[in-house]
Design a protein around this nucleic acid. Structure first.
Lengths: 112, 112
DNA sequence: CATATAGGTATCCTCCTTGATACTAGGTAT
DNA sequence: ATACCTAGTATCAAGGAGGATACCTATATG
């Protein structure tokens, strides 16, 4: 029996692929409290990131159905990003991940 | 004020980096029920993966402190991998991620 | 006229991860 | 004598993600 690509079949393989982008988790975290504009996201990013990269990351999260892009027809442009329904449900993972991350940071300090 | 690398400071940035390997999440999932040998892991992987790649993934998880490598001095060699204490605490994230992953798979089916 | 604004795309380059292959150890089975 | 077993490492090639830069829109402002 051949081994198959389990994307869309195994929840862990599927999650792994969704989260593979360098900023996916942090973007979901930034969007969890409501709509944010493109340049606001830029300023909220923890490290330097080009708008090219941010644009690509947002586009792929949108294509995967986790976030929604809403464009206002005005000059200068205004675009808001916010979580979709399935994106919103990711909050439990974020919560657990935030708690684990803090414990891991403690672990790193003790090790040092 | 310059933006900095928040690894070791922000729980989400830190988690993202830990989980960046292509198989990290699935490996933590496979190891959650106890020690597993190298070749057993090979056979449990959902897709084809070379032993070179598996070896590297395990090594980096070990260096990050999430798993422990135990080598038995015997011929042929026997090596077991299992979760460290901080690796074990990741189970809550896995649980939430598993549930979300299943909902996301449902979402994909409805969309199709 | 030049410039700033917000939110992008197009293109190229580079680096990192992964994959493929060959090689290793020492003992046991055929 | 040869092959097989486990659990790797060393080396090289390929692919993809990310970064840098230039360019685009249409309007308002100096």
């Amino acid at each position: 029996m051949d081994k198959k690509d389990l994307f869309g079949l195994c929840p862990f393989v599927t999650s792994q692929k969704i989260l593979s982008g360098k900023w996916s988790i942090y973007l979901l975290y930034l969007l969890k409290d409501g709509p944010v504009r493109f340049n606001e996201l830029m300023r909220m990013m923890p490290e330097e990131i080009t708008h090219t990269t941010l644009s690509r990351q947002l586009k792929s999260l949108e294509e995967e159905g986790l976030i929604v892009r809403k464009e206002y027809s005005q000059i200068p442009p205004k675009v808001e990003y916010f979580l979709s329904e399935i994106g919103n449900k990711f909050d439990k993972v974020l919560l657990a991940m935030g708690e684990w991350g803090e414990e891991y940071i403690e672990f790193l300090k003790e090790k040092a």
